[in-house]
Amino acid sequence: MQDLEKYILRIADSSLILSHRLSEWCSKGPSLEEDIALSNISLDLLGQANSLLEYCGKINGTKTADDLAFKRGEREFFNFQICEQENGHFGDTIARQFLFDSFTLLFFKKLSESKDEILSAIALKSIKEINYHLRHSSNWVLRLGDGTATSKEKIQNSFNKIWKYTGEFFEMDQLDLKMLDLKIGVNNNQLKKEWDIIVNDTLKKAKLNRPEDGFMMTGSKNGIHTELLGKILSEMQYIPRAYPDAKW
């Protein structure tokens, strides 16, 4: 696999897997309006994943976006582990989404300056969507953090539990460094400062405590995941794998 291909897959997979999780909310939201909002975000992420995978397929030359989404195994997926974590209750989903949105907004802003024109165009389009996602998730962090005693306790716990998955956002491996060198990729490490500001600011407004940066999970850059990803894939990929000759 080419370096660029793998670099793009990392971005695409995070969008794809988180989109999958959000789509699980369909018909289960706390209100009809929220059901629609979560589907909306899921759709945006799916659109991002689709554009990125199509580009990836073009570079690859032999695979389609669908092949990449539906025919790769667990160890060939490179999404952040935070994206595959379970929806839990609404607060868990919001905490996961808020931390992810804060990161991807910064990431895509930098990616829009990439020398790779297609990546830059996809990033530029995505920024508009992520702005909306971040507004939605931070508004809910405020409502839940500064809502009732119950909601405060719940969302605080959500943040405490999910925190260890945020370390992966800022990792840089050999491939990332190479892409950065080529002025194609982003320096994730440098995003941490600004991410801290966004997150701390919102948590403070919501009267929540920021969890300590302690032990952090890692592995997704090498295709190491939690057990949850395999279950997502077996559901997501079941039809194309059961009927390999069929077109849909």
């Binding site: 629609i36 589907s39 759709l43 995978l53 039809i239 194309p240």
Partner: peptide
């Protein structure tokens, strides 16, 4: 939705169910 067999099919179905809401 989580088992739609292609990315396109998944987008269409998700958008449809959202329309119904």
């Amino acid at each position: 939705i989580t088992r739609a067999p292609s990315l396109r099919a998944k987008m269409i179905l998700l958008a449809k169910v959202q329309d119904e809401a």
